[in-house]
Design a protein around this nucleic acid. Sequence first.
RNA 1: GCCCUCGUAGCUCAGUAGGAUAGAGCGAUCGCCUCCUAAGCGGUAGGUCACAGGUUCAAAUCCUGUCGAGGGCACCA
Length: 586
Amino acid sequence: MKQQVKELLSAAWQHLAATGQVTGADLPDPQVDRTRDPAHGDFATNLALVMAKVVGGKPRDLAARLVAALPASALIARTEIAGPGFINFFLAPGAHLSLIPTILAAGPDYGCSKLGAGKRVQVEFVSANPTGPLHVGHGRGAAYGAVVADLLAAVGFAVHREYYVNDAGRQMDILGTSLWLRYLELAGEDIPFPSNGYKGDYVWDMAATLHREHGDAYRHGADEVFAAIPADEPAGGDKELHIDGLVARAKALLGDNRYRYVFELGLNNILDDIRDDLAHFGVTYDEWFSERSLTEKGAVNRALERLRAAGHLYEKDGALWFRASAFGDEKDRVVVRDNGQSTYFASDIAYHMDKLERGFDRVIDIWGADHHGYVPRIKGALQALGDDPAKLDVLLVQFAILYRGGERMQMSTRSGEFVTLRELRQEVGRDAARFFYIMRRCEQHLDFDLDLAKSQSSDNPVYYVQYAHARVCSVLRQAADKGLAAEPSPGVMHLEHLTETHEQDLLKTLARYPELVEEAALGEEPHQLTHYLRELANDFHTYYNAHQFLVEDAALRDARLKLILAVRQVLRNGFNLIGVSAPETM
RNA sequence: GCCCUCGUAGCUCAGUAGGAUAGAGCGAUCGCCUCCUAAGCGGUAGGUCACAGGUUCAAAUCCUGUCGAGGGCACCA
């Protein structure tokens, strides 16, 4: 609809240019907006205001010439020039009616487009360390990332969803060692648990599995384990040195094979749990990308080699540094530590190099906002590698804060006391969780009201929009019971009966949907969908209250049923994009 | 100290590639069920768009500064 108005304007401009009435400028893509005030018509353009300065003359004069040059269209009832030079378009009364057969014929595809032209986009999200279950903070990234990916797919991009598994590195060693220490406790050893170890119950569970299946096969005496290990922090020592010492001891005592077994047990259990958790949340991936595989296939060395060859690495204090400060970062960064271990950053350089080597036109990383300081060094590294850093977009998602009974819930990862995503899902349900997580712009802190998310009332936006869907279904059921089902053939319609204001409003809202999907996709703004769905539901509920659908007049009844069928279709399409179910009854 | 994000109605938030009289929900208040689910609908009240300058036909939106909130500044991940 908007597109058609734009085309009329372009034609008018070309006519003026061809007849020499405007010179000195090509037509930019005309800006056409839906009006806020119905007194300004349905669409308005500021084209004359923008272009008057470029081509000379007064905006209102240019507007008048544009209007005079507009081709005739059955769509437009009339136009007017308003204010400083806006052109307002008033649509013909029936202009939106063809929308209904369009929506019913397109079905699930209504709102989709080919805008992305099949360009390959990778969306990497969540990517939480597999050192424990996902918590509610990860949930927001999961919901947000999943919808961004689905939106991009809806507008025609070839989307690749990926989870980066940090299955290498120190944190995983600490997890494996924590698991083993808990196992030793279960085996009867007296173990002072390290303050920096993973203390969650899930570690106990995995240790119990190890003990049940392998008895004492992994057992070593506590005195042997702790001999000559630097003191822990509560004992006046350094907790980092303490845990690193224990990790080294675990590797030494267990040997490669047994250590690897414990490590993998922890990794695989937690990864399975995360995968299962996300699947129940409606979030799935095309690929789970292993950090370890980067080292194994030599990508890390290759990335460092490329940087070294380009002269962007140097040695200092026994470590290898990347000259990040030459590429917009605050300071240089270590890529290989003085103990010979490469840093997480080195893996991440290799990972992003690998992403671009895989030929994606665009790469989107979705991170927690606490990682924002990390953006310049990654972009800097890509630039240093000779890649285009503009291909990478990093979207930062702010924290979610849970509220119960109006009180903010305190969470602390350190003590292992945090609300998991699974607990949240079980408490408020998947639909409410998905909906609430994406209600706000991602750069806005999210206040997640658990009581509201659970409440079965119209105060709860999830129930509100789902209820609209269930109501349509209910009406259609009753129509069927009375033998009054809508004509199945879309060819037989009596849509000219849809003259009520509420019906016209509903049609306008339905017409906006494809524009909205496009905007939400290009702006990576899932929250626009929740706002739209609430508006559509409101229009429907208002209509429902004001008019009867199952009326005597068969033609009118059929037209109204077709209209609410279209409403149901758009609700479904929207729900599908945000991962919320479309219930037929409440 | 430096950097990033945010500041809009009592509360939670939309609106920010500059556009016409700044919107919604909740809360407050007044109404609407012999009728397809009242899990719904409508009316009213409520604003110095944090503050101060600047840019221009036009600023909540862009620029500068100030104040306030959160976050980041590791040989952790």
